[in-house]
Design a protein around this nucleic acid. Structure first.
Lengths: 203, 203
DNA sequence: CGCGACGTTGATTTGCCTCAACGATTGTGG
DNA sequence: CCACAATCGTTGAGGCAAATCAACGTCGCG
């Protein structure tokens, strides 16, 4: 149950067996069915969650009532509204499951207790924040400098497994384009690929 | 010289006089003329800088050689490529002054020394990171959900003083639109305003 | 003075959206 | 287990927001 988060922590920092155990005891294991909210607009986010299995979206609702996807999160990602969580302020976002999902949840008091006892964890959480920052920066750049097709290519390259798990219209929302246009993009690419790499056909 | 950063720190956390002094001694005061690079693509960012006076842009260069503005930073903001800085990896971005600028610079060893001695500073740096994350999230949302005009309005509302200091074409780049189109937007708004609030004319 | 940086304006083009209609698939209650 | 609805992807026609290209006026500055 904790194997994946142990592996994750070890990519960030070194912990003793006692420290691992102490941290793991702060976590609450939870299974959540598909299409369930973990957080809704206006609520205070009371968790940081490490995903063991499953898939989650975080998003805003725009003035026309449409979802604007901020992130997709799958295995070995942390998910939360970190601003709402650490400042205990009402959130503007929604967090919901796209699949049956298994999580390790950390509350704010438990997190603070863990950081108190295990300062080395500061590094893990800082790296987590930095990864988010890096991915947001890349996204802003892409949104300004790249065409819809280039953004889609980048998405496929960075998250090759996601299109198999996530409905297309949500990917369109993530990319900032309409579902119809993503459909046309895909059609165009299919045509290009069958022209440029005929060998890949199974026949 | 340190009054502004003292005020900033006090909005985040409580420090004793000794701690203030210790931290301030870690900082290096520097004056930098207009149009100077603090960081160029490929270099490792060796500072986090607190702006006492002046104005700075951070940006990427896109495939066509155009600047894509990531952030503007002015008085009382921290500026750095935080990823490059804390991981000591080559940066993909540029950082440059738009005006003669006065900074307090912190190197990585000095930062670590300060955090070692004054754990309360962790909170300040975490809040700084979180402010960046929050502003990036809002920017991604705006880029997807809002029209160019709405994004410009939001920009004016959040940073009412910047348009007076920063060339228009850089604001266009920040907003993700062409300089020509921003010019047209402004013209449109001017027309609207003279219609809706005729009193403001000086005659 | 002359040059480069900057902003404006017009004409034209285009990337992407909107609306509407239509299959295919999935899920669900009777 | 079927029927019906809901969800999802595709396709076509038409429209609009914003880009591009080109020309020009202005300003600050070496």
């Amino acid at each position: 149950m904790f194997s994946s988060i142990r592996a994750y922590i070890q990519t960030c920092t070194q912990l003793s067996e006692d420290e691992f155990l102490f941290f793991e005891r702060r976590l609450k294991h939870k299974k959540i069915p598909k299409k369930t909210f973990l957080l809704q607009q206006g609520e205070v986010c009371n968790f940081e969650g490490f995903i063991i299995k499953g898939c989650i979206k975080t998003y805003f609702i725009d003035n026309n009532g449409f979802e604007v996807i901020l992130t997709f999160a799958t295995e070995n990602w942390w998910v939360s509204d970190m601003m709402s969580f650490s400042e205990q302020k009402p959130s503007k976002m929604f967090i919901g499951t796209l699949e049956d999902t298994e999580l390790l949840l950390l509350t704010l008091p438990e997190k603070e207790a863990a950081l108190q006892k295990i300062p080395a964890l500061e590094r893990m959480f800082r790296l987590m924040l930095q990864r988010h920052v890096a991915s947001y920066q890349e996204r802003i750049f892409a949104g300004i400098a790249l065409s819809a097709e280039q953004r889609y290519d980048l998405f496929l390259q960075k998250y090759p497994h996601l299109p198999l798990r996530i409905p297309q219209h949500l990917i369109a929302s993530y990319l900032g384009i309409s579902p119809e246009f993503l459909s046309r993009l895909r059609k165009r690419k299919l045509y290009k690929n069958t022209l440029s790499s005929p060998k890949s056909s199974i026949s």
